[in-house]
Design a protein around this nucleic acid. Structure first.
Length: 425
RNA sequence: GUGGCCGUAGCUCAGUCGGUUAGAGCGCCGGGUUGUGGUCCCGGAGGUCGGGGGUUCGACUCCCCUCGGUCACCCCA
């Protein structure tokens, strides 16, 4: 047995059928939902000028150490990076094209982060998402969050929890940051070594720590909700009211921070309780009211989310939802008279709209019938020397107790259609 | 980037205290008389035991390195 010379790079993988079809269906469910909600698709490049992502914030690990970056062959070379997320690309596209607002888009695609892989975490991973730019109406927040919620429902997931928080705006955030930093500095000695480093860089992120040692300090930390400006508090209240009107079950999670530095006001996360791994966030997002401007566009508020396809599928596995299923063909053509007839009959049946497969390499009838059975086909079309000589084909019903009869090749399509009546294909 | 665990057929796994030609199930291929699948029976192919080095008379087994996987921290989808 020859040994494979190469394998998929660390953190990447091949997705074979039927899992690949399942992913395609998932994206299709999302696309339908988004388009029915007035979102149009944006396809943006897989790589961008590295500056697009560096605007995400110097304190984000995503841009400080997780970027796949490279130079192209330009003169001078361009400094580029594979996208680690899509919101920045969306904002760049907005600043570049200046579409009329509100601009509502959805996307799906691969993203890349250089991290150590683990359960639900890959270096190349796929997300679907939506973004609404050009309005800071809290009802836009509700529409976006509600869309995420309905998507999980559409997949059949039951154990997805919605967590919401507000990080405040430019009027409320500085006071909170100062209060939090002061508090954490005061209890610095109780924090883990890593949290002390985080504290210098971005105090808010200390709230994200999962280390046991930090929990007592975090539990007593000042809360953003107590620092919200009037406008921010009102925005948050309207979002919550809207979620209530949708019948959404959600939890206020006052320490929900999220990793991207650009978030303002509303932030939220979808946690899959069926996943007992550390990576149980199957989606997350929030409002980013300054990002477009950061990227050279006009001041433009935005709200959106990204949902992790890989993790959602893991959650589906855990809940037994949205199962992968092989896509069977309708007809299997068995040709034991040289195989030339199968070439023509397959083509004719496919043109008639049926799913059709066949065997190669001149295998025995028994072997080909076995293939036919395993293909999941309902009907086998058999051509042996007799049929070939008289221009006919044997049409066999592969279902238990099914019979067979011989028809002229001219009548093949209607004969197959008759047998397949009532089956879904 | 740091740490724990794990690498034996395509897949899931056995493999004794270090001892002869490394096994099973599933899958795959072929056969069970004249052209017919599923169940059953028989047979076959397929592994330099992740790679390299070391200890030993002898290594799948013990040690080191390396690569890969996995889980956790970190980070986040």
């Amino acid at each position: 047995m020859a040994k494979a010379l190469f394998r998929a790079p660390t953190g990447t993988r091949d997705i074979l059928a039927p899992e690949s079809a399942r992913r395609r269906r998932l994206v299709s469910v999302f696309a339908d939902l988004a388009e029915r909600s007035g979102f149009g698709q944006l396809e943006s490049p897989v790589f961008e000028d590295i500056g697009v992502f560096q605007r995400l914030g110097a304190a984000s690990e995503i841009v400080t150490k997780e970027l796949f970056e490279f130079f192209d062959k330009g003169d001078p070379p361009r400094h580029l990076a594979l996208r680690p997320e899509l919101t920045a690309s969306v904002c760049r596209a907005f600043a570049e094209h200046r579409p009329t607002v509100p601009w509502k888009i959805w996307y799906s695609g691969s993203q890349f982060r250089y991290e150590r892989p683990q359960a639900g975490r890959y270096r190349q991973f796929e997300q679907v998402g939506v973004e609404t730019l050009g309005t800071d109406d809290p009802h836009a927040d509700v529409e976006v969050i509600g869309l995420g919620m309905r998507f999980y429902e559409a997949l059949g997931l039951k154990q997805v929890r919605l967590l919401v928080n507000s990080l405040g705006d430019a009027d409320s955030r500085p006071a909170y940051d100062a209060a939090l930093a002061a508090y954490l500095q005061g209890r610095r000695g109780e924090l883990s070594e890593q949290s002390r480093v985080t504290l210098e860089r971005n105090p808010l992120r200390v709230l994200d720590s999962k280390r046991d040692q930090d929990q007592p300090v975090i539990a007593a930390a000042p809360l953003m909700v107590d620092f919200l400006s009037g406008a921010s508090a009102e925005h948050f209240a309207t979002v919550r009211d809207g979620l209530d009107r949708l019948g959404a079950a959600y939890e206020i999670s006052p320490r929900l921070v999220r990793g991207l530095d650009y978030y303002t006001r509303t932030t939220f996360e979808f946690a899959a309780d069926a996943l007992d791994t550390a990576q149980n966030a199957v989606g997350g997002g929030g409002r980013y009211d300054a990002l477009v401007e950061e990227l050279g566009g006009p001041p433009t508020p935005g709200i959106g989310f990204a949902l992790g396809v890989d993790r959602i599928l893991l959650a589906c596995d855990a809940e037994g939802a949205f199962a992968a299923a092989p896509t069977p063909v309708d007809v299997f053509v068995v040709d034991v008279a040289g195989g030339a007839s199968a070439v023509v009959l397959c083509d004719r049946l496919r043109q008639a709209g049926f799913g059709v497969d066949r065997a190669f390499d001149g295998r025995s009838m028994k072997a080909q019938m076995k293939r036919a059975d395993r293909s999941g086909a309902t009907v086998a079309v058999i051509v042996g020397p007799d049929e070939q000589a008289e221009g006919t084909a044997t049409v066999r019903d592969l279902r238990p107790g099914g019979g067979q009869n011989r028809v002229t090749q001219h009548d093949l399509v209607p004969a197959v259609a008759k047998l397949l009546e009532g089956t879904t294909s």
